[in-house]
Amino acid sequence: MTNEEVEIVEKTRVILEGIARKRENLIPILQRIQEEFGYLPPYVMLEVAQFLNIPDIDVYSVATFYNQFRLTPPGKHSIRVCMGTACHVKGGQITLAAWQRRLKIGPGETTPDREFDIDTVACVGCCAMAPVTVVDKKVEAKADPTRVDGILLNYQLQKEKGEKEKEKN
């Protein structure tokens, strides 16, 4: 195991402390872990199986059944494109295509520099603001291809600003 992995396992053990070893806690545990690390590393899933004293495959089956869980590391910024009905009729597909075109990755993937990841969500319930994209937990209303470019430009500017400040220091 690499140092990073050892660290993650140790953090996992801290999270597991104080949680009852009951099967019904499996989903809340996985949610907690994903919140912490952004995804479910395979060796952590093994750890959870051992903790709850259930077969490894049971943890894997829950982790792969539910859309919320991801098995690969996320990017720094998460892009969640809403694919609800209202967004669909107002061009949700077009918005998704715009993100894919700009970031050159598909849904469920992360950019090689680990800056962004894209995923689709069924519906975030902001149908009146369609089409929407949730960028880093912030709901962006009426996110058409032009807005997509605007959001990305904003991130780029922020990044450049941050780098300049770093240079200064």
Binding site: M83, G84, T85, A86, C87, H88, A122, C123, G125, C126, C127, A128
Partner: peptide
């Protein structure tokens, strides 16, 4: 678990 895309009554 209001899963219908296009519905947001329960959320509200």
């Amino acid at each position: 678990d209001e899963g219908d895309p296009g519905a947001f009554m329960d959320r509200a």
